[in-house]
Design a protein around this nucleic acid. Structure first.
Lengths: 193, 193
DNA sequence: CTGCGAGTATACCGACCGGTATGGTTACGT
DNA sequence: ACGTAACCATACCGGTCGGTATACTCGCAG
């Protein structure tokens, strides 16, 4: 039995993880050392290793927390802005992304993490795939409850646009990409010729 | 005058750059040390620094070479497979990406590099933006020569799909994403309701 | 009262990092 | 023949990396 102990989220562990989330997202995984996280979280390396076991453990916890945070954000945004099933509710998920990116201008944290983790057998890779699948599935779910035809395929198409716009806005240096994404998404959701 | 001396591409410099391109793409920028590049290129750190000045200089040269290689590949692919203007020729650019990714399964090297460089003032960042703009512009150009209406907007939409499918195929772990991208792109290029 | 978990503080480890220094060997153009 | 550019080999530099060890304080539950 090699049961993996999940980190015990003591108050200091919460502070560590919140600090790590900011730094990892802002500067990248390898660019941020454990010592710097300890300093900015006002604790010590010892405590980080007591709580998370290793830097890889901390990275995994970071990805899981970020995934959960995005899911909660998207769910709440859609429910609050478009509570009723329909095309507008589907498109609200893209608006959630737009709003989310106001505070996340460095692109998709999962794509960025993938860039540094792919090829290694890192535990965080499955969390990254998880997040992408969740967003695809949520589009499909919203299309289904809206009674729109062929929700699976349209959901996957919306997910394509969803990921594409993030890249264009950041690496692509295309500040108006969201408008294109919205109009394209509107046509994917709308009636078909 | 602080004229930047471009690297003199001696035979060894070519070997260094080719090795760097493979290693940087496969493992990431920070994950690969100068010493390892020297070993695998069968040369020495001294020569690397003589030719490229610094690791950042080598990274910049890597991005420039990769950009040029993709441009040449895309141009040649489209011309060879669909020499005549029209919708099929526009879609051939997406097929070029499909083919390109057979040997580049780790996603977009520029998006990956952006993940590690964003926020720094690295010279490579403008090369990344360059590449994204070139691909967008090429879509627009192909649409224009095909005589398709509203080529600017459709070009930007195709570029969205283009970037989106790479993310879904790699970080998204969605092996069938290319089929969705193709059918969506087909509708973007095709007649409008 | 005692034991324990949480946390602090600090020193340390070997390995590796980007980058430099020294010195020597070839090949080639003038 | 001589200078120069390209390259090789190796040792070295200060700094940082992930991770460990030691020793201490504090609050709390038995």
């Amino acid at each position: 039995m090699t049961a993996i102990t999940p980190p015990r989220m003591t108050p200091t562990a919460v502070r560590i993880l919140d600090t790590a989330e900011v730094l990892f997202y802002l500067h990248g995984l390898r660019a941020v050392g454990v010592e710097r996280i300890a300093e900015e979280a006002e604790t010590t390396k010892k405590t980080i290793y007591d709580r998370f076991g290793s830097k890889d453990g901390l990275i995994t916890a970071y990805l899981a927390q970020r995934r959960d945070r995005w899911h909660a954000y998207a769910l709440a945004f859609v429910d609050r802005h478009e509570p009723d099933p329909g095309a507008a509710r589907v498109l609200a998920l893209l608006r959630a992304l737009d709003s989310w990116m106001d505070d996340n201008a460095r692109g998709c944290g999962f794509v960025n993490a993938y860039a540094e983790l792919a090829g290694t057998g890192h535990a965080g890779l499955s969390i990254i795939a998880d997040e992408k699948q969740w967003t695809r599935d949520y589009y499909v779910e919203l299309l289904t409850e809206a009674g729109i035809a062929d929700p699976q395929r349209r959901g996957r198409e919306l997910a394509l646009v969803h990921e594409g716009v993030v890249v264009q806005l950041t690496a692509g240096a295309q500040p108006h990409a969201m408008a294109d994404a919205r109009s394209l998404a509107g046509r994917i959701v709308g009636p078909w010729p």
